[in-house]
Amino acid sequence: MNDMTLMDKTVDTQKIKIAAKDVNVYYGDTHAIKDVNVEIEDNTVTAFIGPSGCGKSTFLRCLNRMNDTISTCKVKGDILLDGEDIYDKRVDPVQLRAKVGMVFQKPNPFPKSIYDNVAYGPRIHGLAKNKAELDEIVEKSLRRGAIWDEVKDRLDAPGTGLSGGQQQRLCIARAVATEPEVLLMDEPCSALDPIATAQVEELIDELRSQYSVVIVTHSMQQAARVSQKTAFFHLGSLVEFGHTGTIFTNPEDPRTESYITGRIG
């Protein structure tokens, strides 16, 4: 119930959580991201919007170095998390990803029980000293994922047996259980029906109180509903970045306006 009290708390001046400076990404010969500069604040939902193939997902995956798993992908420029370059040679991507969690487009629960799905992160990172603590983390995360009431009686059932929306909330709970500082979400609602989408969106808004949330979305309405800041990507470049309200009502760049009004995309 503690998260309920947090909800009302609003923070106005935010500290910069992630700062990207002149980021360029190449897939082999393809120049996927061009000179992107962006500052992502703490306790804020930042939305990345843009037509498909504009590089928003690629850029998102740079923020926790998930692109490392693709051998042809090269990242240039600096991405600072709390002032530390995450592409520094000394940085272990494993440690980074514990701080910067990720939720994917398609719900991807592991073929394990609901409990084991959530306990997976705390176990590998050694966040619980004993079973009781682990139980506590699992319960807290499932509550935070707004799915506790639906699954509390069947924690031993396989996670793959849940409905799509439940699976995605389970995946969010799983990401939350690792206690990250930043939560990256790659089109988390694209595989969900409208009701499940509404539940997840509500959840995202709650999560803002504790994390910096970055969400990639196809849907402009979704960006308008959940985010405080919005970045518009087009053809690999960051066209415009600002308060969500400003972007949607009074965009500076004609390309943003074209996209918002549905002329491109």
């Binding site: 503690n2 009290t5 947090l6 708390k9 998390l81 709390d82 530390e84 995450i86 520094d88 000394r90 940085v91 272990d92 494993v94 440690q95 980074l96 514990a98 701080k99 990172h125 050694g126 966040l127 619980a128 000293k129 603590e133 506590e136 983390i137 690792t178 206690e179 990250p180 500082e181 109180s209 504790q210």
Partner: peptide
């Protein structure tokens, strides 16, 4: 793993994953 120290509900919770990214924790 100082879960016990964090009073429930107090925000923001202490960071769980070490301090600087540039140093590997013993567990890592």
């Amino acid at each position: 793993t100082d879960l016990s120290q964090s009073p429930a509900g107090a925000a923001p919770e202490p960071r769980k994953h070490g301090g600087s990214l540039l140093e590997q924790t013993p567990r890592t």
